Computed example of a mutant assay.
Amino acid sequence: MLRVDIEKQLGEFSLSANFTGEGRVIGLFGASGAGKTSLVNMIAGLLRPDRGTIVIDGETVDDTVAGLHIPTWRRRIGYVFQDARLFPHLDVAQNLDYGRQMNRLAPDPAQHKRVIDLLDIGALQGRRPGKLSGGERQRVALGRALLSK
């Protein structure tokens, strides 16, 4: 469950959002410049709202009245940036495993195989991000987010 009731002033642009999503996957769409990325950055904790609250799975992660702002790394959110943001010095296999290691999760070979098969990235394991197409980088970044739980 995701509950958002926020406002944010970004230069001349004013963002206001108020919604509740009950699903595990929520789609966000709108015109270019509508504030989608800014909203996602607030949900992820990369940007603080000027006013309001954000609640994820019953846990309040932002509450401007109470002065509460849970840091990004404690929100347990997988975020796939538009530019994938893979580590260029790591190969695909190492990039995929990064989130699991950072979250101190035990290896789960079955889940690892499911994600690799789902995203069709098995043949990419030894390649570095600089040798991947844009779509391949996106799939690897999505795999890293999924494997970090």
Rank of each mutant, 00 (worst) to 15 (best):
L68I: 10
Q94Y: 02
G30W: 04
R139D: 09
L124E: 10
L10W: 15
I56Y: 02
L86R: 04
V55G: 04
R85V: 01
E22L: 08
D97V: 05
V92C: 06
L147P: 05
H112Q: 15
P107R: 11
T60D: 08
L124F: 07
H112T: 13
G35N: 00
L146F: 05
D83W: 00
F87P: 00
D91V: 06
E59S: 15
A17H: 07
A17K: 10
R85T: 01
P49L: 08
G21H: 13
D97R: 09
D83A: 12
T60G: 12
L86K: 09
A31Y: 12
P129M: 02
A34I: 04
V92I: 06
D91P: 02
K131V: 10
L105D: 03
D5W: 01
Q125H: 07
M102I: 14
I54V: 14
A106I: 01
A66Q: 14
P49H: 07
A123N: 14
L119Y: 08
D57Q: 13
D117M: 08
A34E: 09
E22D: 15
D50S: 08
D117P: 06
L96T: 05
K131H: 14
S32G: 02
K36A: 09
V65M: 12
A106G: 03
W73N: 15
G58C: 04
G45T: 07
P107N: 01
F29S: 12
P49S: 09
D83F: 00
R48W: 14
E22G: 15
G130P: 03
L96I: 04
I77Q: 00
D120S: 11
L142I: 15
G21V: 11
R51T: 13
L39C: 03
P88C: 01
A44F: 11
I70R: 14
L47S: 12
L146V: 11
L2M: 13
V115A: 10
N18S: 14
G33P: 10
G122V: 03
K113D: 13
R75M: 05
R139T: 09
Q82N: 02
A141E: 02
F87I: 04
G33L: 09
V4N: 06
D91H: 14
L86Y: 00
V92R: 07
F29L: 14
T64Q: 01
G45K: 08
V40I: 15
A84H: 11
D83V: 00
W73C: 10
L142A: 09
I70L: 14
I77M: 01
D63W: 09
D91K: 13
L47V: 15
G99E: 01
I77C: 02
R127N: 12
I70H: 07
T64P: 05
L86M: 06
R24C: 08
N95Y: 06
L10K: 15
D91W: 05
G130C: 02
T37L: 05
R104N: 06
S14E: 15
D5Q: 10
R137V: 03
R3P: 00
W73D: 13
G134I: 07
A34V: 04
H89N: 13
D120K: 11
T53S: 11
E136R: 04
D62I: 00
H69A: 11
H112Y: 15
V140K: 07
F81S: 00
V4T: 03
L146K: 04
R3V: 11
G130A: 06
D57T: 08
G67Y: 06
A31C: 13
A44T: 11
G126C: 01
D97P: 07
Q111F: 13
D50F: 01
A84N: 08
E7H: 00
D50I: 10
G52E: 06
